[in-house]
């Protein structure tokens, strides 16, 4: 899994049926000091993360589908946790 910052969201009315109702958030993977590392990933969110929050991102189809809880969902990235703010 990776640390990532939620930087935005996507609205798409026409999408695969298993994505209907799923929140689509734009996430920027970051390192431990919050510096961007790699490209922006569009992830499904099943934990209610908001823009600006630091989250746990899983980048693999089977795990992402499991997080979404829908059989054979065509997803390869999912937010599976919100990191508690430190300090």
């Amino acid at each position: 899994m990776r640390l990532a910052r939620v930087i935005g969201s996507v609205v798409a009315t026409r999408k695969h049926r298993t994505l209907v109702g799923a929140k689509l958030l734009l996430t920027q993977p970051v390192d431990r000091d919050g510096q961007p590392v790699g490209g922006v990933q569009l992830a499904v969110d099943s934990v209610g993360a908001g823009v600006g929050e630091l989250v746990l991102l899983v980048l693999e189809g089977r795990a992402a589908g499991a997080a979404l809880g829908r059989r054979a969902a065509p997803v390869d990235a999912a937010i599976v946790g919100i990191v508690d703010p430190t300090g």
């Binding site: 935005g8 969201s9 996507v10 609205v11 798409a12 009315t13 999408k15 695969h16 994505l19 734009l26």
Partner: peptide, 9 residues
Amino acid sequence: TGICDHWTT
């Protein structure tokens, strides 16, 4: 798997 209406960042 999806056509974007719009996105915000």
